[in-house]
């Protein structure tokens, strides 16, 4: 029988920022509310709430997905990464974060966690992306402040830094 929950209550087990996690939730809970309101992970921003702007992007199995438009039950058994899981445990910034900071690739910062995760996914699959590829990916999300150019440059810088490895 295909009924998973009759009364709307359910348990979801998934990996969150590298940790096995199980939550008791309801079928109508979306991932962004689960993260922000139930797990106090406020780095995932919510703006349009309808899949368009990408401010709420998280990585699900390494690919960007709008958390505002993903039910919590959809991540059962999957790997979820939020902005809180991007920096190293000792607080060292990820190369993409470092490049965004160095370039000031943000103004209000509302889109930034989504943009950084988008860029991480891009660079995981395209270590040396050309400008057109970066633009194609970055256009998935909306930034109302920067005009995108600094974001594109930050992604190029991060790609370079990741290819060259850590400076000794």
């Amino acid at each position: 029988m295909s009924l998973i929950s009759k009364d709307g209550a359910l348990r979801v087990a998934f990996t969150l920022n590298g940790r096995e996690t199980t939550v008791e939730t309801v079928t109508s809970r979306v991932l962004s509310d689960l993260l922000r309101d139930d797990m106090n992970l406020k780095g995932t921003r919510v703006s349009c709430g309808r899949t368009v702007c990408g401010a709420c992007s998280v990585l699900v199995d390494g690919f960007p997905r709008a958390a505002c438009s993903t039910f919590a039950f959809e991540v059962e058994g999957r790997d979820v990464q939020t902005i809180e899981g991007v920096e190293a445990p000792d607080g060292t910034l990820d190369p993409v974060q470092a490049a965004f900071a160095a370039k000031s690739a943000f103004q209000c910062g509302f889109c930034t966690s989504g943009m950084i995760l988008l860029a991480k996914s891009l660079l995981a699959t395209h270590p040396d992306p050309d400008r057109a590829t970066i633009i194609a990916w970055i256009s998935s999300n909306i930034c109302r402040c920067t005009g995108y150019e600094l974001i594109v440059e930050a992604v190029q810088d991060a790609a370079r830094a990741m290819r060259e490895g850590p400076k000794s």
Binding site: L3, S5, D7, A9, V26, T27, D33, S69
Partner: peptide
């Protein structure tokens, strides 16, 4: 309205077309 306004509801996860139609 936002997704937060949705009430918890029954959830089906069919694996065949006939299960989906039954649900």
């Amino acid at each position: 309205r936002t997704p937060a306004d949705l009430a918890p509801m029954p959830l089906y996860r069919p694996e065949t077309i006939s299960e989906a139609l039954a649900a």
